[in-house]
Amino acid sequence: MTEILSVTPLRPELQAELEARFTVHRLDQAEDRDAFLGAKGAAVRGLVTDGGQKIDEAFLARLPALEFLSCASAGYDGIDIAELKRRGIRMGNVSPALEDDVADTAILLLMAARRDLPRAHHHVTSGAWAEGSYPLQHSFTGGRLGIAGMGRIGQAVARRAEGFGKEIGYLARSDKPGAPGRRFADLAELAAWADDLIVCLPGGEETRHMISAEVMAALGPEGILVNVGRGSVVDEAALIAALTEGRLGAAGLDVFANEPKPDPALVTLPNVTCYPHHASGTVEARGAMARMALDNVLAYFDGRPLPHEVTL
């Protein structure tokens, strides 16, 4: 039977299905990972993991027969994509399974920030409402929305935003056929054009701190920044300064530079709405993600098209 290395186990019923079809080696259960890889790695042809695991060149060198990697998350920050490409190893991930829930969360965070939900909630629970009405807020419907990253999630965000009458602008290297709105090649120009900016960019060195002090300044004191991409994309020191000094209106954040212990100087600000990297945290999305991770493995070794393959 084909040998598979399981770094991140799937749901029990799906893990059982994987193990019924293949010879599966459970690295997650190994007491000595190095010895385990030494004993089992040479024959492994498939790998099941997630983007939070460190799958670097040294790790991949222990798997000389590897042909296919199934990533059970949308992001793959910890995976050495250049080494996969060099060796001709194909990779599938599960981004279609979570795009709707992540896009919903992006709109949720933007709406909460635009209508000042955290402070309005406190106005009620603290008893301050009895002393006077809450200040008027700005309407959510209409206006200009910038989307940094127009992949599947970015396009799902755009579809939802159009329902609120928003004009769409997006950052992408090339035009996206069928995507609504206007393409910008420069992030600061997009931020200056937009009222609010939703970040749907992947992590990695290429996107590190792309949301810089310059971009926040362009978004301006009435602007709102929402991040459902990766925490590394935003310069958090610059974000804290911009929010504290009133150079940026508010932020809605699902992801942070340091998880699960984000900077208290950021998350305790009254104009920040926080979510615990849980945009895909629904029963439906997580179940579909695990199913797709397994289906990618089955499709590859059956010689069928993958449900979702990452272009390396």
Rank of each mutant, 00 (worst) to 15 (best):
P135E: 09
D101F: 10
L117A: 14
D116E: 15
L110E: 02
M111T: 02
H121G: 02
A128T: 02
T105M: 15
S139V: 07
H122P: 00
A103N: 04
R114V: 01
G142S: 08
P118C: 11
K85F: 11
H122C: 02
T125C: 02
S133R: 14
S95V: 13
A120H: 08
P118Q: 01
H138Q: 12
Q137K: 04
W129C: 00
D104W: 01
S126A: 05
H138V: 10
R114M: 08
S133Y: 13
T141L: 12
E99V: 11
Q137E: 03
H122Q: 14
Q137G: 03
W129E: 00
R90W: 03
M111P: 06
G143N: 01
R90K: 11
G92D: 05
I107K: 01
E99C: 14
H122A: 12
E99A: 15
N93G: 03
R119F: 12
D104I: 03
L98E: 09
G92N: 00
G143M: 03
L108E: 04
L117G: 01
F140R: 04
R87K: 07
L117T: 12
D104Q: 03
E131Y: 10
F140L: 13
A128E: 12
L98P: 03
M91L: 13
T141N: 04
R119Q: 15
T125Y: 09
R115M: 00
I107V: 09
R114Y: 02
P118W: 05
V94W: 11
G142H: 05
Y134R: 00
N93K: 04
T141G: 00
P135L: 07
A97T: 09
G88I: 04
R115H: 13
R114P: 02
M111C: 08
R115V: 02
P96C: 05
D104V: 04
M91G: 06
V102D: 09
V102W: 09
S126E: 07
L110R: 08
Q137M: 06
D100E: 14
G143L: 10
